[in-house]
Design a binder for these strands. Structure first.
Lengths: 228, 228
DNA sequence: GTCTATAACACGATAGAC
DNA sequence: GTCTATCGTGTTATAGAC
């Protein structure tokens, strides 16, 4: 029986190097000329390998994008740690996490649209809602679980249980907005985050009112019922 | 000086016919084999025209998709009319409009993913948020203006002004959900609509409470501030 | 203005040899 | 693991016919 670690040592060390070379070359060219104008031939040529070799490591051009996304997620997770250590208020934690995402992703904004394009395709394994993305999605939701749990929020149990997923959805919405944002310095998106998060905070605290809490309970019920 | 109507009469009648032929052939083939497996050569062949002719009427394969979308919107507008005539309650009107969309779009569900794939690309003219889509978007929003105005809803003026656009956004969200829905008969999406709309209704009426109204005002302010 | 026929191009992707 | 050669596709170009 082979173990997962087998693939990372010995004979494949060189392979890993080639993989890295192709990936970093691709990302640099995506950044410099955009996704559409960067051809697989050009990536292979620039990296000094054959096209076939590039396809040996990355099943498609979109898989190179997916690799970039994984990188982004890792960087975000790192950037978020000090914020979660320092801040206590929900607004500060949530705003910090979202702004950290914008900062990490900023260099790739111009061609991020292409990634989002495949993300919207329900048949693509790259979709954030797909089964293949489940691990990455869970990791993303986990961040928002920490955002909520380490904060000063007091919520009814049913809402608290669903909140991380809801906050993750909110992040998806922010990303959607961000992808379409053409304003200088992405001011519209940062403004959206800075103003929307306090509103979410107020909305969540409103669940103390019985009328609002009734609706909140029903919304949670709806979400549960409609999840696949 | 030539007038706009010149292009629609006399000599172009045959052209219009050819255009229709190409479009209907393409849509049938998209439906039967999916978008990806339907080639431009095959469409032209099946329609009995040359490839060049297909490109004469449709600038690209995606333009054929756009034409399909326009068709869908027109069908939806038709399907919606009797509902808006008959129903008075907001919930019934809104639910009716959304379910009508699901019904009209159902035959295309399988390959709709491919369409929304390109629609999600912010650089694509097919994006519902793009400048080129502005007329279609306005027309869509207009439907929800009718939904709200002809209903029994009583809302503060600022919220009422933004509501049609918000309801249109809600429709976009439903479509996004629909595209990813793999359940038999699209039950999850219909269930979402049937349960979410009454909740929206209740939420909107809650704005009578001063606390809630305060937040609603701020949300409207945020939306206005963040619109391009 | 509408349409045909055919070739050619660039690109993503694949096959199969080494 | 890596290469070369090749395929299938969207799209464009050419050169013309009615």
């Amino acid at each position: 029986m082979t173990t997962l670690t087998d693939v990372t040592d010995g004979a494949t060390a060189k392979g890993e190097q080639t993989r890295e070379l192709i990936l970093s070359t691709a990302l640099r060219m995506f950044r410099e000329q955009g996704y559409g104008k960067t051809t697989m031939r050009a990536i292979a040529g620039e990296a000094g390998v054959s096209v076939g070799n590039a396809y040996y490591y990355f099943g498609s051009k979109e898989h190179l994008m997916q690799a970039y996304y994984d990188l982004l997620v890792a960087q975000h997770r790192e950037a978020v740690e000090p914020i979660l250590q320092a801040e206590k208020s929900f607004t500060a934690r949530m705003t910090g996490v979202l702004l950290a995402w914008l900062e990490v992703a900023a260099p790739y904004h111009e061609f991020a649209g292409t990634f989002f394009k495949t993300a919207a395709d329900p048949n693509s394994p790259l979709s954030p809602f797909s089964e293949q993305s489940a691990p990455a999605r869970e990791a993303g939701i986990e961040i928002f679980r920490q955002v909520a749990e380490g904060s000063d929020l007091k919520l009814p149990a049913d809402l608290r249980a669903e909140l991380p997923e809801l906050l993750w959805l909110l992040e998806m919405a922010v990303v959607l907005f961000w992808v379409h944002d053409k304003s200088p310095d992405l001011r519209r998106t940062t403004s959206l985050v800075n103003r929307a998060v306090p509103l979410v905070d107020r909305l969540l605290r409103l669940t103390r009112l019985p009328v609002v809490r009734g609706i909140a309970t029903d919304i949670v019920g709806l979400i549960k019922a409609v999840k696949p």
